[in-house]
Design a protein around this nucleic acid. Structure first.
Lengths: 159, 159
DNA sequence: TGTAAAGAGGACTAAAATGGTCCTATATGG
DNA sequence: CCATATAGGACCATTTTAGTCCTCTTTACA
């Protein structure tokens, strides 16, 4: 369903929590309590976010996590990629080949373009947007420049 | 990774094959051969596409599948939804409640808006686009109307 | 009217991804 | 030194996904 994993969802919620109070370090237990999720799970999520550079961690007592950049400089793409790896709709949208069906596929190029469009869209959503409760303004119109389709281009024959 | 399942991928490829030769019925075995995938798998995919109304099937000898509408009237959303169910990034993006964390979540609204933007984007990509080999023109610019973020709106405090 | 060629529908299995927990090690402040 | 944190994995249970197979029905045509 083109869905985010639960962990990614948690990550977004957690990041938003931190973003709303960016000046102090937040511990896993504190965040777990706020977000009402089990401590180990929140801990795991935080570790992933830290490892990919979105959070900075301080160990020891009085430790915790802080944003490594301003909320306006952290995108939805960043968060998703931190938990799920590179964003792409299809197997072949990032890997460099190894699909084996490329010749009989015929849609790879276009899927990759769609992937790219989604990635760009997600790049435009920042943590600052997510953290604020007031609605984002998104373009509900014309996300695709409707190509008056060329009906038949040379290469579309098969076998 | 915000990825489509393999079956969805197959579905797109298969639909594109049919779209390129829309005037005759295509059997599962024929398509399996073209697309170089095992017959049972292709069969399963076709059944799903037919059940959700994107293909019409004719049984018996000389049977097969035909598009139920013109390629320009079948969208990427349709194909994805046929295999994966309703498109939405988060659990709460279509279900009507039952999340239980909504109060502590604080990002639900915005995620839903992002979901909606992706859905709209996908609605703009048709099977006609996918089937043609010449590149789609996608808006690599400004998919989000960058809200100069309101810095602090009333509701974003958390005790 | 019989037979072969198709799809419909669903049961089933194997493999992979996901979510979640826990343990040990290390760092840090008081 | 001790309490409090994170780091980094190992680990398991559950769910999802992919893929196969079997039986039934429909249809064209010899």
């Amino acid at each position: 369903m083109l869905k985010l994993s639960k962990l990614t969802d948690y990550a977004a919620v957690i990041m938003a929590q931190i973003a709303r109070d960016p000046d102090q370090a937040h511990t896993a237990s504190e965040l777990a309590a706020r977000v009402k999720l089990p401590h180990p799970t929140v801990g795991k999520t935080l570790k992933m976010l830290a490892k990919s550079g979105l959070l900075e961690s301080r160990r020891g007592s009085h430790g915790g996590y802080v944003l490594s950049r301003s909320p306006a400089d952290i995108t939805a793409s960043d968060i998703i990629a931190a938990i799920e790896g590179p964003i792409g709709m299809t197997e072949c949208s990032h890997a460099d080949g190894e699909c084996g069906l490329l010749d009989s596929c015929g849609v790879a190029d276009n899927w990759q373009r769609v992937s790219q469009a989604i990635r760009t869209l997600l790049d435009g959503v920042t943590l600052a947007h997510l953290a604020q409760s007031s609605p984002l303004k998104l373009p509900v119109q014309l996300p695709i420049q409707s190509v008056t389709l060329p009906t038949a281009s040379g290469a579309l024959r098969e076998h």
